[in-house]
Amino acid sequence: MSEDVSKRRLGRGLAALIGEMDQPVPVGETRPTVSADRTVPIEFVARSPKNPRRYFDEAELQDLAGSIRQHGIVQPVVVRTTSSDRYEIIAGERRWRAAQLAGLVEIPVIVRDVDDRTALELAIVENVQRADLNPLEEALGYEQLIAEHGYTQNDLGEIIGKSRSHVANSLRLLKLPDPVRDMLADGSLSAGHARALVSTPDPVVLAKTIAQKGLSVRDAEKLAQNHIKAQHAPAPTEVRESKDSDTIALERSLSDRLGLSVSINHKGGGGQLKINYKTLDQLEEICRLLEAR
Rank of each mutant, 00 (worst) to 15 (best):
D202S: 00
E3Q: 02
L136I: 14
G270S: 13
Q225R: 04
V262M: 03
L17W: 04
V204R: 02
R117Y: 08
A139Y: 13
R181C: 05
A131S: 14
E121A: 13
A168T: 05
I248S: 15
D244A: 08
L197E: 01
G157I: 03
V5A: 10
I146C: 01
E158S: 11
G268S: 05
D186S: 03
G13T: 08
I89Q: 07
D4Q: 12
M183S: 02
R80S: 09
S245W: 04
R69C: 04
E291A: 14
E126V: 04
I146W: 00
V5S: 06
P135Y: 05
Q62R: 14
H232W: 09
R218S: 09
G11I: 01
E60Y: 10
D37N: 07
T209G: 00
A15R: 10
D178R: 14
Q23Y: 15
A123R: 10
H71C: 04
K162H: 10
L206H: 02
G103R: 02
V167F: 05
K50R: 15
G150W: 06
N276P: 05
G271A: 05
V27M: 13
R54K: 14
G161R: 02
A224R: 00
T33S: 12
P41M: 06
N226G: 15
L101K: 10
Q23C: 14
G259H: 06
F56G: 04
E158C: 08
E29F: 14
Q272I: 10
I110M: 12
A233S: 06
K274M: 11
L215T: 03
V114H: 11
S170D: 14
D244S: 10
A91Y: 03
R38S: 04
V105M: 13
F44C: 12
S83N: 09
R12M: 11
I107G: 00
L10H: 03
P108E: 04
A131P: 08
A233N: 04
D256E: 15
R69S: 07
Q23V: 15
A15V: 10
R181L: 08
L136Q: 13
S242V: 13
R293F: 15
Q75W: 07
S163I: 08
Q75L: 09
L223E: 03
Q153S: 04
E148F: 15
Q62H: 13
S188W: 00
S35D: 12
Q75A: 12
L173H: 00
V78H: 02
T82W: 05
K175G: 09
P203L: 01
V262E: 05
T118Y: 12
D63N: 15
D132F: 11
E106S: 07
V114D: 06
P52Y: 00
N265L: 08
D115L: 02
S163L: 05
A196D: 01
P201T: 01
